[in-house]
Design a protein around this nucleic acid. Structure first.
Lengths: 257, 257
DNA sequence: GATGCCCGTCCCACTGAGTGGGAGGATCCC
DNA sequence: GGGATCCTCCCACTCAGTGGGACGGGCATC
């Protein structure tokens, strides 16, 4: 039982569950047991049994043969610490920033070498945003990522660099030296920018968001078509938004425990 | 091992995990292992080990001794079928409804005998909304709940009634006959209303939301202080919003599989 | 700096929860 | 009706998971 040729096989029930949950992506409208078993790399009979349990718990739902992610995940997700802390206070600030700039506004949190998008607001006439809420972005190829990374401890920056800088477009920064130089400037107060480094025709300007105690929380950005977006124009509004966020994050808990 | 006096004890790892995740509620800012073990009713050493696994998977995060719900839950939650299907198309419609009425606007989905709130927008000068996004409401004591229940199959209505109608305020409807009569009217096309049946000073008007194929999706509501809210005034806007939602839900998949 | 308290982790012998190959039954399509 | 799929159920095997208790660290209090 449970012996693969390679060395990557999952061991516990929880790992199996994760494999199942992660088999879903945004454009599935329900998967069958067989498809799920295939994607998760787990025998069908095991998947069938696990799915039954997960349905009972509300993590999955099923409608005949179609299985999809359940309401309880949404519920729990709304209680997740970092998004909850930020989203509530950020939405009005983001709405204001969108009104002033007319562009797409994003709020994201760092997770290792990716950014997880916590909120998105679509600008008036702007391009379709590159992520949905809950989506992930590469940290080194986005303004949001660079804004956060610029204020992260050197060890963590190193971890990202050594992780390898994946190429997304011809303009993606893949040279650690170039990236490090940009991060230095960001640390000194410049806004993080990005032009076509992640998706062909999109550009973005971002800045880090701090809690009052100085704790780094995430980043907020303004983005739109590369031609239409004037970084100089949106800079003051973006900076003001970040400050407003810090203020609204309230007295908060003191720094790191 | 694992023998309780009562007959309610959880058996599998997944049940244990659920107990742990559900031990968190909205006003915790991180729990310790001991507190968690206490709430979940699981031995400390087991909790310690499970938490380590859940942290590795991203469902939990820990900062020193404080443990809280992790980003991955938020991520997965955003992929949950029902909220995803509705939220995206609903937000503009809700914003519009708020602009027209000035009151709080809610969108909710049914889960057994409760409604899960999928989106909330706070009105201009309105009372604080009674739920946050991701929160639950009793189905029989809210307009949102009654709006959905009015269009549910008789068997499901029966299940809710036999489940017992919990008292929330002096005005909560606890008589199955009275509730059934209201549901009949709602089925015939009346808007669902509620005045102080859930929370003392709040009132609400709601209507069901259908997909184009006629599939019942959830409900949308307008709510505010009992004195300030004029059901007659908001009714046309509310009905228009529900229709707009159906239209925006697109061709969609055909009815039940 | 000794005492007590509470914290979270680790150890390890025990065992039943979880496993998965295969049978079985339903459904659909050619 | 034959064949291809799909999902569930059965059941003997065994290893993943368990939890009592020992352990070491942090923090008041005396």
């Amino acid at each position: 039982m449970m012996h693969d040729s390679a060395a990557d096989d999952a061991l516990g029930v929880l790992d199996r569950m994760t494999c199942i949950l992660e088999a879903f992506d945004q454009d599935d409208h329900g998967l069958g047991i067989s498809e799920l078993a295939l994607r998760a790399g787990i025998p069908k009979s095991t998947v069938s049994r696990l799915v039954a349990t997960l349905v009972r718990q509300g993590y999955l739902e099923r409608d005949g043969k179609r299985i999809h992610l359940g309401l309880r995940l949404f519920e729990l997700g709304q209680l997740a610490e970092q998004p909850r802390e930020l989203r509530g206070v950020a939405l009005p600030v983001m709405a204001d920033l969108r009104a002033k700039t007319g562009e797409n506004v994003h709020l994201a949190i760092r997770d290792r070498s990716e950014m997880v998008c916590i909120a998105v607001m679509r600008g008036r006439a702007a391009a379709r945003p590159a992520v949905r809420t809950g989506g992930r972005l590469p940290i080194h190829a986005t303004a949001l990522g660079k804004a956060v990374l610029g204020h992260a401890p050197a060890a963590e920056v190193e971890a990202v660099l050594s992780h390898g800088l994946e190429t997304w477009t011809a303009r993606t920064i893949t040279d650690p030296v170039v990236l490090t130089r940009q991060l230095d400037e960001i640390r000194r107060g410049r806004l993080a920018t990005e032009a076509g480094e992640f998706a062909g025709t999109l550009s973005c300007v971002a800045t880090a968001v701090f809690a009052p105690a100085g704790r780094l929380m995430g980043a907020i950005s303004v983005s739109g078509c590369t031609e239409g977006l004037d970084a100089e124009r949106v800079a003051p509004d973006l900076r003001a938004a970040a400050l407003a966020l810090t203020r609204r994050l309230g007295p908060g808990r003191p720094g790191p425990a």
